[in-house]
Simulated assay, not measured.
Amino acid sequence: MPFVIAAVVIVGVVSALNLVLTLAVIRRLRHVEEHGGAVTPSLLPVGATIPELAQVGRPAVIGFFDTECDACTAQLQPFLDLARAYTPERVLAVVSGPGDEKYTGRLRDSARVIAEPAGGPVCLAFANSAFPAFYLLDEAGTVRSRAVTVAGLGTPVTA
């Protein structure tokens, strides 16, 4: 009988530990989902000079979108709202993936749009592997702010 009691106690403790770990994983997954699906995105650091390939005027806002990314779809309208603070020549949107027409059509009036396959030259120049990704540049063309959400960029830079 003491062995049965010990076994039940051990199973109870292991089950409680399993529940705590499962709740921690769920919490972490929610955090990842809220931040555009990237925990540690590969973005150019603040203070970096943007690659010559992507110079579109200064200050500038640059956004990277993937057509197969749900977080990108959610960030499209906030990006368009931010783009209104600039002339279209000072906003660059890079769209990767199949079916890019749904993005390019909406972005065309607010930004200069580059549609390229995944791993295209602009994404390579920025070493961009996270989608969505956004950059806010200052007058010198250096990264002032970077984020995986438009809200994470902060306030626009005025000329």
Rank of each mutant, 00 (worst) to 15 (best):
V25P: 00
P78Q: 09
I10L: 15
L19T: 13
A127S: 13
A16G: 11
P51T: 09
T40L: 14
Q75K: 08
I5D: 08
L80Y: 02
R30K: 14
A118H: 12
R90L: 10
H35G: 06
D81E: 14
T49W: 00
A125M: 01
F126G: 01
D66Q: 14
P117Q: 06
I5L: 13
G99V: 11
V8P: 00
R58D: 05
A24E: 12
R27G: 15
G119F: 05
A133C: 06
L80G: 01
L21S: 06
P88F: 04
L82N: 04
A16L: 13
A115D: 02
V9P: 01
A127V: 05
P117E: 12
R30G: 14
C72M: 04
E101T: 09
E34D: 14
Q77D: 14
P45L: 01
P117C: 10
S96H: 05
G47V: 05
P45T: 12
G99E: 08
A71D: 08
G105T: 15
R27E: 13
I114R: 12
F79T: 09
A24N: 12
C69H: 09
L82C: 03
D81K: 10
A24V: 04
L23G: 09
G37W: 09
Q77H: 05
Y103P: 04
F64E: 08
V95F: 06
Q75R: 08
I62C: 05
P41C: 03
L29G: 11
A93M: 06
L17Q: 08
V11A: 15
L19N: 10
A6Y: 05
T67N: 08
S96L: 08
A16P: 00
K102S: 15
V61M: 14
E68F: 04
T104N: 06
S96D: 06
V20Y: 11
V9R: 09
V8A: 15
A115R: 02
R28E: 13
R28P: 00
R28Y: 09
E33I: 10
R30F: 03
I50N: 04
S129G: 13
F65W: 11
G97Q: 06
E101Q: 15
V95T: 02
F126S: 05
D70H: 08
T104E: 12
A115E: 09
G36R: 07
F126V: 07
E52P: 10
N18Y: 12
Q77K: 13
L76G: 02
V122D: 02
R27S: 15
P121A: 00
A127K: 13
V14L: 15
V25G: 01
